[in-house]
Design a protein around this nucleic acid. Structure first.
Lengths: 331, 331
DNA sequence: ATCCATGATGGAATCGTTTCCATGAAGGCG
DNA sequence: CGCCTTCATGGAAACGATTCCATCATGGAT
């Protein structure tokens, strides 16, 4: 008692039913070329009657590329990237394009694999939060792939990208903390956030605060790595009075590590976290954050990759300091 | 100075380079059929030399279906679904399959659209958190689609699904609250969580607590809707002493609404939240939760849809009560 | 009345792969 | 030595759409 195999309705069936040639059917359905009103109507009626849905397979082969957008993020579990993905999906939806999601785990090798796999599928539009250097994107460009980078850019080349204004965000946070009297400010960042590290150094320099390299610590994109980085920093340097966390996972890790070490926020150390997330307000204490328009980043990136093929553009979106209760004066 | 269009390397090129026919190349590369060792080597060498990557387009058309897995979730921004998606991605990665992500927003119409679009792409495997009734899945089955439902099931038909043990989870939570002396326990649930509502009724009945229909309130899947539901409940019925939130967004909304209304947790009302999320521990107070294996649900669903085509199976994964500090004795 | 431009139309080629089938060679067995 | 099986191999068909091109009809302009 197996399900009866159902043959797919093809353009040929529609042509036959409408008494015209396949070329005419295609022309009517795609809206290209000309056809008389009577014919158009007959074709449309036949297509509707047979419940015809053109197969993307045939079309793709003929056109030699797949529709749709490839989306590469480090970790979909990180709400920042989830919101970014949501923005991409929102824009893709209005364009009727499917989205192929892949997670790199911030591993350049995995990233290269995913690029290869997208190439194999002949996907021609990709939005990526890059983690490798520019090298691995070579084959992609050579294959004519349209790429827009999000949140980060690859150094060297000048390629379209959509990013939050890291420089301004970091500067605002640092100035805010400095204004509270802090001098030994630490930065917790992910690999790939070199832009923020650079901005951090600059901001300190401008304020005349010497940069202490030991207070800049990098973590990989996992929860464990973030916790290790935060706990390590707090233990190694009990003299830090403020921490700037470069992402919500690092902020979370800092809160956790501080509790574990019985370091009170904000009495013992102040904390500013990059990226506003719903729980920042629920946290004890509510976290002061630099909010980033994650959704918009994704949406704009999708717009760029869909509508502005070829024209390399860089979009920078503003960040905002939201003061809550995780910062106090220097102890 | 435009980039030179690069012609794709095809099986024909490889055949020519290796001095064999296209059929032989295909046989060697796919591992089907027979070929002499010498030929195999020549083909492999030629393919490597030309950096040949078979186009998925041709293969898909010939095979009449696309590889890959369609994944339909209500909202990728909800960490539960993000973790579920992560599980699917993990399994898909090991199988080398791409994942096409779509969000339904718990809207049956949008769900139907997405199904249609997947059908058009000839995707043949789908993992979905269904929101509509069984109706709209009809065309999908008729087209021979392999579907595995996650987190929820559609009523009526007996179809493969992977779910957390809602019944046990709800019962555990209700028994825990009842054990603390609570009698007026409210349930905040999403549409689509009827299973949990049913379990809630049963659990109360078994404990001899009359069910008060006004204490069961349903919300849609947005933050706003969740907040409205929580705030509405708390205002309308100041006599509730405990709330069971059917998901992390509802839990979040409950904490927020309670603060707004100056209702203290757990002194004034106790809260148990479905789904353990990282911030539950960071929250003030730390939230008592029913944890769900979101990642595993996704992973198992992917396993099912990849390896067990046709064999309808239902997998139920255990939940766990994690006691933190959001519940107290009846006031 | 003739000619040309325009529009409608369908046949056939094309995209890149897999797979069916026919062919030829080689080897084992009686 | 001849026959049959097995293996290796390549040509060609198939998948389902789009699109090039040739054909034919129509109608306006000269």
């Amino acid at each position: 008692m197996k399900a009866s195999e159902q043959r797919r309705v093809t353009v040929k069936d529609v042509a036959e039913a409408a008494g015209v040639g396949v070329a005419t059917v295609s022309r009517v359905l795609t809206g290209t070329g000309s056809a008389s009103a009577a014919t158009r109507e007959r074709v449309l009626a036949a297509a509707a009657r047979l419940d015809y849905r053109p197969s993307a397979l045939g079309r793709n082969l003929r056109r030699r590329h797949t529709g749709g957008i490839g989306l590469l993020v480090p970790d979909i579990t990180d709400t920042f990237y989830a919101r970014l993905a949501d923005g991409v999906l929102a824009c893709a939806k209005s364009a009727g394009e499917p989205v192929i999601l892949g997670t790199t785990g911030d591993d350049p090798e995995r990233e290269a694999e995913l690029i290869g796999s997208l190439l194999e599928e002949s996907v021609e539009r990709v939005i990526a939060v890059p983690c490798g250097d520019g090298e691995m994107w070579g084959p992609a460009f050579r294959a004519g792939l349209g790429v827009v980078f999000a949140e980060r850019e690859v150094p060297g080349r000048n390629l379209p990208s959509v990013r939050a204004d890291d420089r301004a965000g970091v500067r605002t946070a640092v100035e805010y903390l400095a204004g509270l009297g802090h001098r030994r400010i630490a930065l917790l960042a992910r690999h790939g956030q070199e832009q923020r590290v650079r901005a951090f150094r600059e901001a300190l320099a401008e304020l005349g605060v010497p940069v202490d390299e030991e207070l800049i610590v990098l973590a990989r994109g996992t929860r464990d790595s973030a916790y290790a980085a935060a706990a390590g920093l707090l233990q190694r340097r009990p003299d830090v009075t403020a921490v700037l966390a470069g992402g919500n996972m690092l902020g979370e890790a800092t809160v956790l590590a501080a509790r574990e070490l019985v370091i009170r926020i904000p009495r013992d150390v102040s904390l500013v976290m990059f990226d506003d997330v719903p729980w920042a307000e629920l946290c004890s204490p509510p976290l002061t954050v630099i909010s980033q328009p994650a959704h918009d980043i994704g949406y704009r990136a999708a717009e760029l990759v869909l509508r502005e093929r070829g024209r390399p553009r860089t979009v920078t979106l503003p960040t905002e300091l939201i003061v809550r209760a995780s910062c106090g004066p220097r102890r």
